[in-house]
Nucleic acid binder design. Structure first.
Lengths: 246, 246
DNA sequence: CGTCCAATTGAGGTACTTCAATGGGTGTGG
DNA sequence: CCACACCCATTGAAGTACCTCAATTGGACG
């Protein structure tokens, strides 16, 4: 029985992480632990592994020579990355941990062999690539055509949705392990202005902030302000497997 | 003999377009012609086909409800897109022609079958996906952390490189069928400021403009100003086949 | 209890936007 | 063949949304 049938049949039952799918499929994986602020992938180096984040946050980013930094996107528990390793690409950006991270690594060669052998596994990972690319595109819209308030509100809502899916956020609040500076480098703003913008959202009674926790006081108002629609996250189309396989 | 061996063996001989690769592999393809300004893919619709642009320009873009538009990237001759169709994804953005376009369409199902049957073909198209995603990431850096001058210079250089690869630009000039408004929506600027910025680049003797043609007076100065490095285009790693197969 | 880092707020500067007027190029109809 | 309309690019002038610099505060940690 291929994973394909399994996946489609059991799709709506429960969630299963990509890392668990890999072990399910009998692939040899290595579990790694990294402290916060460690570099996982350095720009320019040949990609050797496909990774799945099991716990913690990481980010993709690029630096300009004068110190400016742009964060491309955040990687959350359950996200997998560097599928490009299967064609032996060189990294065109770096990946760094934001919190302590537990992750699973699979050698690119073995991963590719598994994809070829199992169409369902290939389909599942293709979906993750579709989702990630879509998140990148939304990031372009966010930075290119939204105001600071819209950007901040939009990012909060995206991370909330994604963390909900990963099962590490509740309905009305979200813990973001991000400094104002990190948010700024993700949103193309200055840290000072991120702080001001959050103050403005608080003043409008859309959110509360308490340390790293953001309370969603008025999710509907926030979504309207940001013109947030979660279609780009392709949430309905996520591959799922029943909990008994976890 | 698989395409894999063929591709790797003949990689450095000559160029061949993705569309030609598809016919080489015996896939049934349809050639379509579209006028300028026509919609190829509408946001929300299910993707049915994988496309290869044979001639002309197109763009991916998203609209906000109040009319703001963000162009995500430009698609040039030789580019292929909507590989996501193979997992039956819904379009999360629209695709529109900029000039009259000739393109080749392959049904997603047949395309997927071909990828499964031919590892070399799969590898070649995986490369195109890697390149396109990398271009999206560079677009994020460009919009998020570069000044208007840097953005304009950087975009000109990217398009010049890509058009050189496609064989439709010479060393010292490039024809961009783009209005100031289109450039602005790609760069997250206003049309007026794009015009001013081009004037500034002209005043610095970095470029000339004449209608839709941009002359590269000082490519090195331009690249230094924009901090342009073409590593992200993965040019060395493009799949190639000899001209005799065209 | 001092140190350090992050967040916040104020004040002033700048890069970009918006509105508006002008001119060039092109296609069209009289 | 010219007159007109239309679109696009350019430039000026004024406004605004950000940025930078700087000072203050509060929390975490040794």
């Amino acid at each position: 029985m291929t994973m394909d049938a399994l996946l489609s049949r059991l799709k709506h039952y429960a969630e299963i992480t990509d890392g668990e799918m890999l072990t399910l499929s009998g692939l040899p994986t290595t579990v790694l632990h990294r402290a916060a602020g460690q570099t996982l992938v350095t720009i320019g180096e040949a990609l050797q592994n496909v990774f799945v984040i099991e716990d913690g946050w990481a980010m993709r980013h690029r630096m300009l020579s004068d110190g400016r930094r742009q964060i491309l996107n955040f990687m959350l528990p359950g996200d997998c990355f560097d599928l490009q390793a299967v064609v032996r690409a060189k990294a065109d950006h770096s990946v760094t941990t934001i919190t302590p991270v537990r992750l699973r690594a699979v050698s690119a060669g073995q991963f590719l062999a598994a994809l070829r052998a199992d169409a369902g596994l290939a389909s599942a990972f293709w979906w993750t690539a579709v989702q990630e690319e879509s998140i990148l595109r939304e990031q372009i819209v966010r930075i290119g055509r939204r105001s600071a308030r819209e950007r901040v509100a939009h990012l909060i809502l995206e991370l909330h949705r994604r963390l909900m899916r990963a099962g590490v956020a509740d309905q009305h609040s979200v813990v973001l392990p991000l400094t104002r500076e990190v948010m700024a480098d993700a949103l193309g703003l200055s840290p000072v202005h991120v702080s001001r913008t959050l103050s403005a959202l608080r003043a409008r009674k859309l959110i509360t902030t308490d340390g790293r926790t953001i309370g969603l006081l008025d999710p509907i108002g926030l979504a309207r302000l940001a013109q947030f629609s979660d279609a780009y996250l392709h949430l309905d189309e996520t591959m799922r497997l029943p909990a008994e396989f976890a």
